[in-house]
Design a protein around this nucleic acid. Structure first.
Lengths: 329, 329
DNA sequence: GCTGCGATATGAAACGTTACATATGCTGTG
DNA sequence: CACAGCATATGTAACGTTTCATATCGCAGC
């Protein structure tokens, strides 16, 4: 596939406008230029349909005005919300977003990093699972939700606190037989701390907390069986369920109702993420809300910060509880 | 934010390897080079940590190996599935994906197009709603789901056929009081044809078909009221509902059940899109499945086709029906 | 041993920009 | 009226590649 050949260059514009090359350059870089000159250049550029060639510019300035966003995938609701916000934040600062998905191919993560060194992007925002990813420490990189080296700044939600919050809410709403359900990819990450936080509260109260951890590829079937297996006389052995994300929570709700249980009357249910389709709409379930927008803002802010000598190693953003019909409040 | 300065260049590699500049270039472009030379260059490059500077290369070759993907947003399930597939397809062909979201800012669509002329990308795949988007006809552009000019190739699902298929299925399953529900952004698009196709079948059969068309910003409330308003003696005035997408269908199902109706016993429900979270999982509802992967494949294929003189104006891909528990089959 | 030929390495020019050192024009002062 | 001083325009040298015309090498044939 070929691009249009012979696009007009600055030289053409300069000739057309009857000014020097440097003057044209100034006009397109917002450097003070005599009013009359500026007008002539602008008119000539319009006549010729001139557009700056960003590859030539990039070659000189060593800046590309683009950043890579590395995500496992973009269909998981939380990831897609993240992509949306990061992309918007970057666009607001005149940066292009290069999207790299790694789920299909784990080695892709390392290859993405190489792009930067090839001057393809100015920096990287990555949410990656690869534990031994090598990141050149003086390469602009911000990690989301995964604190994999002290040299690389990480932005994350307070997952541990979120787990605690869920437990405290359930306690407050009268639950005494808690259950934690989780679906995960199999590689460790910050999200693990949701369980740690949740468990810590019950442990402190000397209350037993059951849990079931499933791998993605096992599907939702085992959850259904587990729940069915814990029914005794029309009642479930648990009265409060914390799911690792909203997606799971919504499905668990359906499973519970299939078993003839009422949510939230018989069982209360809390999810995690707090992703909504429209801001005006409610949540799909009661949930611990991640500040996706702030996550994105913070990451982009850190990435584009001029002074890279004093970056924080970890920025932990607060989560909040939002009722969504699956708790008695 | 600054990139690392003084990255090694081809000249450095050439000096280190004791060969000429051009030889180094050949090595990195897979042009035949004496075996011994190649080895020396490769070793020198590794020692110095050399990486091709793609901006210098892009300047010379006028190719960027990247394509822009323009979408309204990336949180809508169908769009995110599309983004996922297009990104993968491009990556498979060594192309980078530049993601541009336009929902927040309609004029962004036009600006995205300009990027290409600035040599930022080699081509564009766009799903845009802007009816008077100006696309340079000899600019590699593939439109998804919107056939806005004969010069610009468009790839779309067979929306009309999908609407027909939904109606035929409902008929086959015994429905005689159909309803069409739709949530849309307010700008015309290919998805409008779902209604056209659906309506055409009933018209031909001389059966009245009710419908309700809502704008995004109105939220789902009016649907609930509409359905409640059509209850008579515990029964709904409709026995078959076709929703413009699965997202809506899932919500409508919940509304129907809230009204004490059983799905699919009392009312059958068909959605559109057929997006699944995992390939192994079933659908959220009975649905007309869009071939997202083929949509992506076809678009990317068309975009990167070398010979751009004989592109089809419209490629219409077949949809299929998939039961998902909200129909009696 | 010399010539001629094919194969392969070489180095300079060009790609379209930015940045800097230099040239030009203009204003105001002694 | 000349000239310092300033502001602004000019033109050239990079930036790191690719490409192409030229140079070099090795070898077969006479």
């Amino acid at each position: 596939m070929k691009r249009k050949e012979n696009a007009p260059t600055m030289k053409d514009v300069a000739r057309e406008a009857g000014v020097a090359l440097g003057t044209v350059s100034k006009v397109f870089n917002d450097i003070p230029v005599g009013k009359d000159y500026r007008r002539r250049v602008e008119e000539a550029a319009r006549r010729l349909g001139y557009q700056v060639n960003s590859y030539a510019r990039g070659l000189k300035t060593n800046k590309t005005c683009s950043a890579a966003l590395i995500l496992p995938d973009v269909t998981t609701p939380f990831f897609s919300a993240l992509a949306q916000n990061v992309c918007q934040q970057l666009a607001a600062r005149q940066y292009k977003t290069i999207l790299s998905l790694t789920a299909s191919d784990r080695s892709a993560e390392q290859r993405c990093i190489q792009m930067v060194q090839q001057n393809k992007v100015d920096g990287i925002i990555g949410l990656t699972y690869n534990p031994d990813l090598k990141v050149d420490p003086d390469l602009p990189y911000v990690s989301i939700d995964r604190h994999f080296s002290r040299d690389v700044p990480c932005v994350a939600s307070d997952n541990f606190g979120g787990g605690q919050l869920a437990a405290e809410k359930l306690l407050e709403l009268g639950c005494v037989r808690p259950l934690f359900l989780r679906m995960w990819s199999g590689v460790p990450g910050e999200a693990d701390k949701r369980w740690d936080g949740f468990a810590s509260v019950w442990r402190q109260r000397r209350i037993d907390c059951a849990s079931l951890h499933l791998k993605d590829e096992e599907g939702y079937g085992p959850f259904r069986e587990f729940l069915a297996g814990h029914m005794e006389g029309g009642r479930l052995a648990f009265d409060g369920v914390f799911c690792v994300n909203d997606d799971l929570a919504v499905r668990v709700r359906a499973m519970l109702e299939e078993l003839g249980l009422r949510v939230p009357e018989d069982v209360q249910l809390i999810g995690f993420d707090g992703i909504r389709r429209f801001a005006a709409e409610g949540f799909h379930c009661s949930t611990i809300v991640q500040p996706v927008q702030r996550l994105a803002e913070t990451s982009v802010g850190l990435l584009l910060q001029e002074d890279r000598s004093s970056l924080p190693s970890l920025v932990c953003l607060p989560v909040s509880y939002a009722p969504g019909g699956t708790t008695r409040e």
